[in-house]
Simulated assay, not measured.
Amino acid sequence: MVEQGQALDWPRYSHGTYASQQAKAKAAKLGMWVGNFEAPWDWRASHADGAAPSSQPLRIISRRQVAQSSYSCEPRRYCSQVSSCEEARWYLANCSWGGKLDRDKDGIPCEGLC
């Protein structure tokens, strides 16, 4: 899961066992590494006093993000069923079977589209 960007290496408990897999996922912008976020343990530490999170400005959602939200991991897709590189990348980053779209494991899914 760490390798696909679906989980974090928590050094406190793993002692860095998954650090290299996390670095690869982060470099390839897989899963949660597509955007920015705060690690759960960092968020908890900054809110340890029980205070509610500070109000943040509303985030504007782009058309691209809306389109991405319409993708689904069910049913499984094959490159012949994918209509764009963006869609293929979303499946690669978010679906358990997404790696099958990257046959040569170079980080580029459905190379005929991308």
Rank of each mutant, 00 (worst) to 15 (best):
D102F: 05
G112I: 09
W41Q: 02
P57K: 10
A45T: 11
G16F: 13
A28D: 08
Y78M: 11
R89W: 08
Q22F: 05
S46N: 12
S70M: 12
G112Q: 14
R44I: 02
A52D: 09
G98F: 01
S46W: 11
Q6L: 08
G50S: 04
S55H: 13
S96C: 00
M32Y: 06
L113R: 11
S83K: 11
C110S: 09
L113D: 09
L58C: 10
Y13A: 06
G50F: 08
Y78G: 13
A67S: 12
K24F: 03
Y71D: 01
W90S: 01
G98T: 01
I60M: 03
Q6M: 09
S84P: 08
A7C: 00
K24T: 09
L92F: 06
Q56I: 15
I60L: 05
R103S: 09
G112T: 14
D102E: 06
C73Y: 00
Q22Y: 02
N94K: 09
S14D: 13
Y91A: 02
M32P: 06
V2N: 00
W33M: 03
Q21F: 05
D49H: 10
C85M: 07
W33D: 03
P109R: 09
S72E: 03
A52T: 08
E3D: 04
A45H: 06
P75I: 07
R63G: 08
W43Q: 10
K24R: 15
C110D: 07
Y91R: 02
A27P: 04
G107K: 07
R77N: 06
L8P: 00
K105E: 07
W90R: 02
R77D: 09
A88F: 12
E3V: 05
A7N: 03
I61F: 12
D9M: 01
N94G: 05
Q21N: 11
S20A: 13
S62R: 06
R59H: 12
A23L: 13
R103W: 11
V82I: 15
K24Q: 13
H15Y: 14
Q65H: 08
K29W: 02
A27R: 08
G31E: 04
D106T: 05
A45Q: 14
A27K: 13
S14C: 12
S55E: 13
W43I: 14
T17S: 11
R76C: 02
R89Y: 10
W41N: 03
V2R: 01
E74Y: 06
S96W: 00
P57Q: 08
A25G: 03
D106L: 03
L30A: 01
Q4F: 00
S80D: 15
Y13W: 14
A88L: 05
W10T: 05
G107H: 06
G16C: 13
S96P: 07
L101F: 14
